[in-house]
């Protein structure tokens, strides 16, 4: 028990240092670049809390990040890298839209939503699963193969959105909107926040349960920590190169379809940009703990929301969020920060 508490303390503090440094850098940037630094800072840090609209939208933006963060965490827990999140989210959104457009008025709405969720999960799983399969079969590096596949998929999805499935009634690069029956219920008007946040939270709980209370989850974690040991202990190691990728891709696909049904109501060109990458950061901040992914995703959405508010009310551009996020990315796995805290703590105890 004592060990766990120390571990928790060290993790929290090092995360605090990481975030602290990234905030310092953003303050520095705002001081350098903004004509009205105080106003900019106010909106960057507190903007998301100034009204219901911003606050709800921030929570809404965290929904896909919870799904992708969970997907990445599952893969990381098994020592597999799914770098194809971007393409999997995008493809999931497209296939969900495609089926919803076909179903349109027929059958009950719930059925349509189920078809959309399942088809997006399957497509995402297929895309990521391929990389897992190649890794198992020929030891092809799944990190690079999943990235390259995803890059190709993004372009192919673009083709569908701007080509066959393009909405002729608008100049926007998008598919037609899906039937209103399939739109998720808004629960925090006037913001975009919809009911799927509950679904996201439930999924996080489900993934937690899967990892720590089921045999598959256990074996997956063992493979992730030490494959040689797992093989020795009689675990089917090959299976756990493919399964986590399937699950990871599936969650990414669902992130896409949920974003379509909850927020966009159509498949907009480039709607998934950044959701996949940020999922990686979210998983890392949460130390791959499914429950911690919820606050981590909200935090990442907060950075985006803050930057957006600052852009609307002041004179900086939205991309400063990317810089803050990259600083967090840089430092979140830095073992030296960990070691430093441990070392200090020990000295104090002695």
């Amino acid at each position: 028990m004592k060990h766990r508490r120390t571990e928790f303390f060290v993790n929290t503090l090092s995360l605090g240092i990481t975030i602290g440094i990234s905030f310092l850098i953003v303050i520095l940037m705002i001081l350098l670049m903004s004509e009205t630094p105080l106003k900019t800072m106010y909106y960057f840090f507190l903007g998301p809390f100034t009204n219901k609209y911003y606050f709800g939208n921030m929570l809404n933006a965290s929904i896909p990040l919870i799904f992708t963060g969970l997907g990445i965490a599952l893969a990381f827990r098994s020592s597999m890298f799914n770098l194809g999140g971007e393409g999997q989210v995008y493809a999931g959104g497209l296939v969900a839209t495609f089926f919803l457009l076909i179903i349109n008025e027929s059958g009950p709405a719930v059925l349509g939503i189920l078809v959309a969720l399942i088809s997006s999960a399957l497509l995402g799983a297929l895309l990521a699963g391929m990389s897992g399969f190649f890794r198992m079969k020929w030891n092809t590096d799944e990190l690079i193969s999943s990235f390259l596949l995803s890059s190709a998929v993004v372009l192919i999805v673009n083709y569908f959105i701007t080509g066959i499935l393009n909405d002729p009634n608008t100049n926007l690069l998008t598919t037609p909107p899906v039937n209103e029956r399939f739109w998720f219920l808004k629960i925090f008007l006037p913001s975009n926040l919809d009911i799927s946040i509950l679904f996201a939270v439930l999924t996080a709980v489900g993934v937690y349960f899967f990892l720590f209370y089921t045999k598959w989850g256990y074996e997956m974690r063992m493979c992730g920590l030490n494959r040689e040991f797992s093989r020795y202990g009689g675990i089917n190691v090959s299976r756990y190169m493919v399964m986590p990728m399937l699950l990871s891709g599936g969650l990414h696909g669902i992130a896409g379809s949920v974003a379509v049904m909850g927020t966009y109501h159509q498949c907009l060109k480039g709607f998934s940009g950044g959701i996949g990458w940020n999922g990686i950061a979210v998983a890392l901040i949460a130390k791959n703990n499914p429950l911690a992914i919820i606050p981590a995703a909200v935090f990442f959405a907060y950075l985006d929301a803050g930057a957006k508010a600052a852009m609307l009310h002041s004179d900086v551009t939205f991309e400063i969020a990317a810089i803050v996020q990259s600083v967090i990315f840089f430092l979140v796995t830095a073992r030296a920060i960990h070691d430093f805290i441990r070392f200090r703590k020990k000295e104090v105890q002695v």
Binding site: Y218, M222, L225, N226, F229, S230, I235
Partner: peptide
């Protein structure tokens, strides 16, 4: 390396 997963708990090592 082969006989144990040093990062896992003793308990998890026992049931593999």
């Amino acid at each position: 390396f082969r006989g144990s997963s040093v990062q896992s708990t003793i308990r998890e090592n026992m049931i593999v």
